[in-house]
């Protein structure tokens, strides 16, 4: 089976830190589109530490209910990046990619239906380059509804509590 894959190449060395990508992302995703601007709602953010020569665009990815057991801290060419800098996850460990009012997660949708994503269109320094290709995808096995439900409960409460709850329910007959 073939599926379409979109890749954005991020040429961070070309970024001049202007935040045009954040501005247009938030404007496009307003309802109706372009009725408001608020970079805090953007699904792309520039990690900016100008004096350290760090300008790093990062896209919002999947929501995760729990943070990792450990954190990454990258040092590249002598530049120390903030913890988990390159991670796309919307994670309890940080404020990135959450709606400022509700805290609900934001996720990049590649501006589906718009051709190129707006951040790519509005970055006139060509930091963001989008490519679309088709690739062979393995047949996906979809877990049963029950398994999904149990997994999410385990994620949230831990296996021990779920086992206790099931045991209590069993004894009630």
């Amino acid at each position: 089976m073939l599926k379409k894959v979109k890749t954005v190449t991020i040429k961070a060395d070309l970024c001049n830190g202007c935040r045009a990508c954040e501005i247009v992302c938030s404007a496009f995703h307003a309802s109706p589109p372009f009725s408001s601007v608020n970079p805090a709602r953007s699904r792309i953010r520039i990690i900016r530490y100008p004096l350290s020569d760090i300008w790093m665009p990062v896209f919002a990815g999947e929501y995760t209910p729990a943070e990792c057991m450990g954190r990454d801290k990258y040092v590249l060419d002598g530049k120390v990046y903030e913890e988990c800098a390159f991670c796309r996850a919307v994670c309890p460990s940080r404020d990135a990619f959450k709606e400022p009012d509700s805290g609900l997660p934001l996720r990049c949708d590649m501006c589906e239906g718009e051709g190129e994503p707006w951040c790519v269109k509005k970055c006139l320094n060509h930091v963001l380059v989008v490519e679309e290709r088709e690739e062979e995808a393995a047949d996906q096995i979809y877990p049963q509804e029950l398994e999904v439900g149990v997994e999410s409960l385990v994620n949230r409460y831990g296996l021990g509590k779920i086992q206790d709850a099931v045991a209590r329910r069993s004894t009630r007959g």
């Binding site: 307003a30 109706p32 372009f34 009725s35 408001s36 601007v37 608020n38 805090a40 400022p100």
Partner: peptide, 10 residues
């Protein structure tokens, strides 16, 4: 982190 509105954004 608040919204700034445009009258006719499109």
């Amino acid at each position: 982190t608040r919204d700034l509105y445009l009258a006719r954004g499109a």
